[in-house]
Nucleic acid binder design. Structure first.
Lengths: 237, 237
DNA sequence: TTGAATGTCATACAATTGTATGATTTAATG
DNA sequence: CATTAAATCATACAATTGTATGACATTCAA
């Protein structure tokens, strides 16, 4: 860890080795997550020595952070977060959003080969890097969904209801990624090709739009029509 | 591992120690999952020696299996899987089902204090014990949901569409358990008290019933209205 | 070409963890 | 009470893994 040339590598070998290390790490982390990835395997795959990680990145965590940041930056650069255009209908916007998320998490050949898996792992087993990830990617993505839901809710839009609906859509999408094993055993393998994915996305959109519409006309659950005695002030008694 | 008195312990200390070990293990596994739980901590909590696990259970995995089986058996005994009664409307049945699942995964003081967490961990990080769990609990639970969805779909019921709808409901529910950290950071903490949970459940039911109804009248996504060439017999070629 | 900076390598170290074991203590039995 | 089987204990072992280091090799500039 004496020098750690993260900037300005002094020799050509350096950038090559560093890049190889980063690439190998990205793949390993994407495949197995942070904990299960061991440095030795990464170095072997990169054709580098064991000490290389210490030398170039200091430790495992910093290597991971750099891989994660690089990957998600590239992902966003290649496939921007879908924003609801002025002329877009909520349905159309939602369709784009759902497809976007499913592509990232489900598709084998996504815009970035590893970013999706890296993000999925980070969501599953959060590390200190989650904050950055939220700030740069997950936050904006979620924000986009919130806006779509708000538009779909129209007059009935209200923070809690909006969040709830967004959670439902969000949940349906990530469920298919986070529960592959279970779905496999239930006989419903998760699609990993574009065509099937689009069908799934459209089904989700129909389902969700109807659900939102229902909650728009009858948001009984979150704010009871006739609130009966506020239960001795449950809020911060 | 010489004797391993899983049946017929020869002395009174034995059953006491064994039980303490099992209880401690159940709590640890429920809190941290299989991998993160270490034998030493379990033994310490049980007031037993390190060798006790080898002695009474053989190894960590068998200890885990016994804890998992015991816990989920007790859970099912105390709170049976909600079946759709003959007179039940789909809405009512779905409400019971959603509440059931949310209680297991979200409630702090559930029917069984640890079974829910144990099952959640097993779903997150499947071990060989997943098969048993599916056979005894998850399978029947899912089956119950399938029946409810089938009833809600009515004439439009059809395996693929049914599975898809069930996935959506299922996904919405477990999302709230599997993504606590993220929801926390988004400012939408997951409810852990009965009253809030019921409200969430009812919202989910409204959302889902509307979604199912929509897909019932327009199942375009999964089975095109005009099925064009049955794709060279997709069923069991 | 030469020397100094720098990348690479084999190796070591410490910590963690599941498992196994032989000695010792304890309790049940005749 | 004595005997014996069983429970408990301290301890050891092997494997894994992140990290650090000092020797060696290589490249580049003067």
């Amino acid at each position: 860890m004496s020098t750690m040339p993260s900037r300005q590598p002094k020799r050509k070998d350096a950038i090559r080795t560093r890049a190889a290390l980063l690439a190998a790490a990205t793949e390993c982390f994407a495949r197995q997550g942070y904990e299960a990835t061991n440095i030795r395997a990464v170095c072997a795959k990169a054709g580098a020595n064991l000490g290389a990680v210490s030398h170039y990145f200091g430790n495992k965590e910093r290597l991971y952070r750099e891989a994660l940041v690089l990957a998600h930056r590239e992902l966003v650069a290649r496939e921007p977060v879908p924003q609801m255009g002025a002329g877009d209908s909520p349905r159309r916007a939602l369709r784009n959003w759902v497809r976007y998320l499913l592509r990232i998490f489900l598709l084998r050949r996504a815009a970035h080969p590893y970013a999706g898996r890296l993000i999925a792992w980070e969501l599953r087993d959060p590390t200190p890097a989650l904050d950055d990830l939220i700030a740069e990617v997950l936050g904006p993505v979620r924000q986009a969904l919130n806006q779509i839901v708000a538009a779909a809710l129209g007059d009935a839009d209200e923070p809690e209801l909006r969040a709830r609906c967004a959670n439902f859509v969000h949940g349906i999408c990530v469920f298919h990624d986070q529960n592959r094993e279970l779905l496999q055993r239930f006989g419903h393998p998760v699609p990993d090709r574009e065509e099937e994915l689009v069908v799934l996305a459209d089904t989700i959109v129909e389902f969700a739009m109807a659900g939102i519409k229902r909650l728009r006309t009858q948001p009984s659950a979150t704010s009871p029509r006739r609130r009966k005695t506020t239960r001795s002030r449950p809020s911060r008694g």
